Amino acid sequence: MASTFSFDIVSEFDRQELVNAVDQTKRDVGSRYDLKDTKTEIDLNEDAIVINTDSEFTLDAVHNLLQLKSSKRNLSLKIFDYGKVESASGSRVRQEIKLKKGISQEIAKQITKIIRDEFKKAQGSIQGDAVRVSAKSKDDLQAVMQRMKQEDFPVALQFTNYR
């Protein structure tokens, strides 16, 4: 039996689920009566989604569709970092939505501070863009997980490598 148990706190998303959500959004935009003739383009890049459409009204409708399809596929809406709306050619609007992945150093420091202050038997260490939490008891790790779920961080947190 292992002397210590651990898990990692990460911020990731399932890329294939995001591809499916974007594809469903494209199909819905093409079939919805109010969006059909807007010539809306939704491009999924490696680290961003670019939406090009004819007005801010249709841009909001596309946002709602994208959020709905993403949440149905168990993707957190915190992965989307909406950029500013820019004017494109021909009185169209364009927006880039960056995809957030990984935990920043500031958030990782907040997480380790909470663990250090509230859980005396657990240790948190920053491992690149993840935080490893270790303790001698699985119960302590479960308590840390519950506490992290209560906190509202600006990124989506997942718990992996539980051993």
Rank of each mutant, 00 (worst) to 15 (best):
M148D: 05
D14V: 10
D117K: 10
Y82D: 10
I49A: 08
F159P: 01
A135I: 03
D23R: 13
L99M: 07
S55G: 07
F119N: 09
D37R: 11
A143V: 04
R92C: 00
K136P: 02
L68C: 04
R94G: 00
H63I: 02
F119W: 08
V131N: 01
R163H: 09
E41I: 03
F57D: 12
M145V: 12
T38Q: 12
Q123I: 09
G83L: 08
I115A: 06
I114S: 04
K113N: 14
V22G: 06
A108S: 15
V144Y: 00
Q146W: 08
E86T: 02
K78T: 06
S6T: 04
I51N: 00
E17I: 05
D34K: 11
P154L: 08
T4L: 12
M1K: 13
S76Y: 02
P154D: 06
L65T: 01
I9T: 00
F7P: 00
A61D: 06
K113Y: 11
Q150S: 14
I42G: 07
Q150E: 15
L157K: 06
L75H: 00
V93I: 05
I107L: 06
K36D: 03
V22T: 09
G128P: 03
I79C: 05
K72R: 15
Q67H: 09
K101R: 15
M148S: 07
D54C: 07
D140R: 09
A143T: 07
A88T: 08
S55K: 03
D139Q: 02
S91F: 14
A88D: 10
K113R: 14
R92S: 01
D140E: 11
D23Q: 15
I9G: 03
K121E: 14
I103D: 02
A21M: 05
G102V: 05
E151N: 10
V19I: 10
